[in-house]
Amino acid sequence: MRAETRERPVTAGQLPTIGELLDRQGVLAYVLLLPGLLILTAFIGWPFVTSLWLSVTDQSVSTSVVRFVGLENFTDELRSQIFLQTLRNTFVYTGVTVVFKLAFGLGLAVLMNQSFRLKNLARAALLLPWIVPTALSAIAWLWLFDATFSVFNWAIVRSGLADRGINWLGEGQWAMTSIIIANIWRGTPFFAISILAGLQTVDRELLDAAAVDGASLWQRFWRITIPLIRPVLLIVLLFSTVQTISDFQLVYVLTRGGPANSTHLLGTLAYDVAVRAGQLSQGAAISLYMFPVLIVCVVALLVYMRRSST
């Protein structure tokens, strides 16, 4: 009896000790969550509210009195040629690269799903483009796409395909093509490794059984493998879409949005307008144009995850 009362000294009217409070799940749960939630609220929640506020006011480095302007910043942008071009670029960049990354990533994953010697080494090496800092690998691309010293141009001229090289980063269309190539190069390994993990969960016996029943390799792939890895494909696609639409580093290093603002994405244009030109509110509005697409992706993922977990 005595031992028991010593361990459970709660009697009516007495305040519980801290130790006892922490043994209550409801209390302990929130205490443990506190540090993380504090950081996320201070540096994601609060800035997000700030960005909404910025976007409906007219703050810039030169204004002293802040004025509420409603949606003016957003509508102003829709009349700007540079912004419309940027919007188009962002969609082209995201659409084209995601399709190629998916195709190449799927192909590479199928290749890597075979057994061969040095497989682990190959897997480690092929992930490199995705793992190293993008700003730094973009420097290699900057040099590869150099107007005069591009090794691609060297190959084009030497092989006799053309007598002059391509001005990779100096002409609008080619500049878009260049950043798209660099993005596909960087993103394909992420698709490949994620899809490979999905492929490894596919039951071999299922495929073998289908083969015995006379299904061709092609049929087995499209009718069995693809439906089974659809969850992975979907998640990778949505993640990549979010990351690509909000890309910054490749464009910042390769073209700074040029030539003549022809390769800006929403992120780099917002940076130019807000940080370099000092139009804070205008920049915030430009960034927020990413929001609708993000919402769609986030909701799709949440709905999907809820459905698959029940």
Binding site: P47, T50, I245, A270, A274, A284, S287, M290, L294
Partner: peptide
């Protein structure tokens, strides 16, 4: 909510965060 913050890109937040 934590999962949603995972998907908020830095390019959306860098400006207001600079203010903070």
């Amino acid at each position: 909510a934590i999962f949603v913050t995972y998907l908020v890109p830095q390019t959306l937040l860098f400006l207001p965060l600079l203010e903070v």
